[in-house]
Amino acid sequence: MNNVVEYEAGVLVDLVASGDSTRINMFMDSMGMPYDVQDKLISELMALDSINQDQVAEILENNTMHSLSSHLTF
């Protein structure tokens, strides 16, 4: 997992805990995330019983292109 995903996951955990859906969408917009992916991620995040950074990072990697850079080797 890369530092960008860890940062984004941390911010999303805080935003979900605050319950401010507008700020969640605005942050995902700033990430360059398409709206259909945003909706899917928000649904997955809200379905969690308890939310933590590791769970959110895993969800992000499974649903976005972030995981690509983690698998590249030079």
Rank of each mutant, 00 (worst) to 15 (best):
M1D: 00
N3P: 09
N3V: 12
N3E: 07
V4I: 05
V4T: 06
V5S: 07
E6H: 08
E6P: 05
Y7M: 01
Y7I: 11
Y7R: 09
Y7E: 14
E8Y: 15
E8R: 15
E8M: 10
E8T: 12
A9V: 07
A9H: 13
A9F: 11
G10P: 09
V11L: 01
V11P: 00
L12F: 13
L12D: 06
L12Q: 07
V13L: 07
D14F: 12
D14I: 13
L15V: 00
L15A: 04
L15D: 00
V16D: 08
V16S: 08
A17P: 07
A17S: 01
S18E: 13
G19F: 15
G19A: 14
G19I: 06
S21F: 10
S21T: 14
T22P: 04
T22Q: 00
T22I: 14
R23N: 07
R23S: 03
I24H: 01
I24M: 05
I24G: 03
N25Y: 10
N25M: 06
M26V: 10
M26I: 11
M26N: 08
F27Y: 00
F27S: 00
F27G: 00
F27H: 01
M28W: 01
M28A: 02
D29F: 04
D29C: 07
S30E: 03
S30R: 02
G32S: 03
G32D: 00
G32V: 09
G32E: 01
G32Q: 08
M33C: 02
M33D: 00
M33A: 07
P34I: 05
Y35M: 06
Y35T: 12
D36W: 04
D36N: 01
D36L: 02
D36G: 02
V37Y: 06
D39F: 03
D39W: 05
D39E: 11
K40N: 12
K40S: 10
L41R: 12
L41F: 06
I42V: 14
I42Y: 01
I42T: 08
I42L: 01
S43L: 03
S43Q: 03
E44G: 10
E44F: 07
L45E: 00
L45G: 00
M46Y: 12
M46N: 11
A47T: 05
A47I: 05
L48I: 04
L48M: 09
D49N: 14
D49F: 09
D49K: 14
S50F: 02
I51H: 01
I51D: 00
N52H: 08
N52F: 07
N52E: 13
N52M: 02
D54F: 04
Q55D: 02
Q55M: 01
V56T: 14
V56A: 05
V56Q: 08
A57R: 12
E58R: 15
E58G: 07
E58Y: 11
E58M: 11
L60R: 02
E61C: 09
E61I: 14
E61F: 09
N62R: 06
T64D: 12
T64Y: 13
M65G: 03
M65Q: 14
H66N: 08
S67K: 13
S67H: 11
S67A: 04
L68C: 09
L68V: 15
S69K: 12
S69Q: 09
S69F: 09
S69V: 13
S69Y: 10
S70H: 10
S70R: 06
S70A: 13
S70W: 05
H71W: 13
L72A: 15
L72G: 04
T73Q: 13
T73L: 06
T73A: 05
F74S: 15
